[in-house]
Design a binder for these strands. Structure first.
Lengths: 335, 335
DNA sequence: TACAATTATGAAAGTGCTTTCATTAAAATA
DNA sequence: TATTTTAATGAAAGCACTTTCATAATTGTA
């Protein structure tokens, strides 16, 4: 198969197969554009020589690597996955490879952030729901690695964001408009050090809306719990057991809202009559469960991030873009 | 530092500094061969432009980081995502990058399969729920690209599989043991040409189990529908409306089982008393919905695939491994 | 001071690939 | 059968550098 010689080039394959280098290149990159018989012969020659195209030469000729990196928190929350889906979908249409870097500690985040821009084997980077500091940004800029941030903004870098305060406000106002006065808030706690915490902004919006409406919230109505359904269910039960319990709960993430919903089912509480529930995110399951929620269009955020990124890769003179995704209450059956 | 332009090339530095590209190149690669004053000027120009020689960057990229590719069907079914999660999780613990190749057509699959082994970019490959032919396998082997298949086996390549026939049998027997005699089957149809179809094996198991138990199935009890909840819900309603309707439904995927479950809620049918439902896969949502199902431990399949892959990367003399994942009925509340 | 060495530089020829464009052969249509 | 389309191929022009070789300027030597 391989003879001990120098690494074979596309020219060797051309010589052995009798076809031009253009055809060899085609067999490798656009096999469907070449006659089956020819393709077969070329492939034979490739196999015979053990030819492996050099990535560096390829990148040089193409002027890009065809590879986008995504730095994302540990693959676990449904919302991350839906963003990823948006990213993967639009990327595959554009014929880019997707390289995923999962972050499970501050250390790892920093290590990615400091090495990735230097390696030169990425055409662009998406940083999802993770904080970057000025130093990281400077490096990204210095090494000309086009980047889009999702959820965490920075003035010098493209971003796709939502206004969490506003989102919290919208959700709460919706509840108020429906006549609720005793409204509880359920958010997540125990966030890992490397991650960001949008929920605290949603809480801010919650407070703001109530203040505008001149409604007092007892502190016992504001609860934080680890981000999972089990704990949310637990808290929901506690809230329901409170004397003068809330008539509505705003859960700052859908996952937790679903936990609350489950609690109501177990307790035989009627939703929305006895208790209204509104979530935040609009994950896939929200639709299935008919959960009323604030949609932030997760898939779209991924799609958009890629769109912006690719446009900046194509034309790096474009000005930095900061896109705000609209937030809307999706009315379903739980309020 | 950088003005919004394209990434500068050695030519830009040449133009700005007034020296030829040869000199620029020398300043970078053999600084001692160029006059100190010239070198200074060139360096100034380099700094001014923020020029980063691509090749050098790439050299630095020779960091110790491996790269694992995963070829996966279009990022959509929850089961794929859970497998991915298993993969991403175990990979992030090791020093490997994860490159994702999403397949949305036969063409693309073939193009990945024929080009990936050649590029030498990957240290290992996982092919998820996608069929490979002997030719593909030969290429993988010839180019020494360690590979693990998930769900679709091949004698010459590592694989992580489940026995779908057996799974269908288990689910059906479970229903029979619970006293059901009129059992319907709901599977998915309209599979894209490039994908595999485990559900047909589950149907085989279904038939087998019924035969062993001497139970006849009317053909009207065996239904296929596109893979989504909406259609599943529709079909469920039709089944329920049948004269002498089934007392149990085996949905060959959880997603469809959940569609059925939703139909029962809308129709006010009591589960499991009026209708029992069993699914297959055990996706996250199954737990939330208390769906009785056959667990195939999706996360684990991803984890295992990586484990096998890495061990083969470390020691290529290892014999091919075919691992069968156990299937068990997870008893929850719908049967 | 004449001539060889040395040093600093640029022109141009690679490097291994991709892609555009033109050409030819084959198929489809009139 | 003549003519337009389409498919399959090759020639050649990039791509972003590195390297070789030739040339000019400077220094060293007798």
């Amino acid at each position: 198969m391989k003879n001990g010689k120098k690494a074979p080039t596309i020219f060797d394959v051309s010589a052995l197969s009798g076809f031009s280098i253009s055809t060899i290149s085609r067999v490798i990159n656009n096999p469907e554009k070449v006659n089956a018989e020819t393709r077969q012969k070329v492939n034979n020659a490739i196999d015979q020589l053990g030819f492996v195209p050099k990535a560096e030469a390829r990148a040089r000729a193409l002027r890009f690597m065809g590879r986008i990196g995504v730095i994302t928190p540990f693959f676990t929350a449904p919302s991350f996955i839906q963003r990823m889906r948006g990213i993967a979908n639009s990327l595959s249409k554009e014929n880019f490879d997707l390289v995923i870097y999962t972050v499970d500690s501050n250390n790892r985040l920093q290590s990615y952030l400091s090495s990735l821009p230097l390696t030169g084997n990425l055409d662009g980077l998406v940083i999802m729901s993770l904080p970057v500091n000025d130093n990281d940004v400077k490096r990204l800029l210095d090494y000309h690695l086009p980047t889009t941030l999702i959820e965490y903004p920075h003035p010098l870098i493209n971003s796709v964001e939502i206004d969490d305060v506003e989102g919290g406000r919208i959700a709460t106002e919706y509840l108020i408009k429906k006549g609720h006065r005793r409204i509880a808030f359920l958010g997540d706690s125990d966030l890992p050090e490397y991650s960001i915490h949008p929920v605290s902004f949603r809480l801010k919006g919650f407070r703001k809306a109530l203040k505008s409406a001149n409604i007092e919230v007892p502190e016992s109505f504001i609860r934080l719990a680890p981000y999972n359904q089990e704990q949310a269910r637990q808290i929901a039960k506690e809230l329901i057991d409170l004397p003068n319990s809330p008539t509505a709960i705003f859960a700052a993430t859908d996952l937790q809202a679903l936990g609350v919903l489950k609690a109501t089912r177990q307790l035989g509480i009627k939703v929305p009559d006895d208790l209204a529930i509104i979530g935040f995110d609009d994950i896939d399951m929200a639709d299935f469960e008919d959960l009323t929620t604030v949609r932030q269009h997760l898939d779209e955020s991924g799609r958009l991030a890629i769109e912006i990124l690719l446009s900046h890769i194509a034309d790096s003179s474009r000005p930095v873009q900061h896109v705000y995704l609209p937030l809307t209450v999706i009315e379903r059956l739980t309020v």
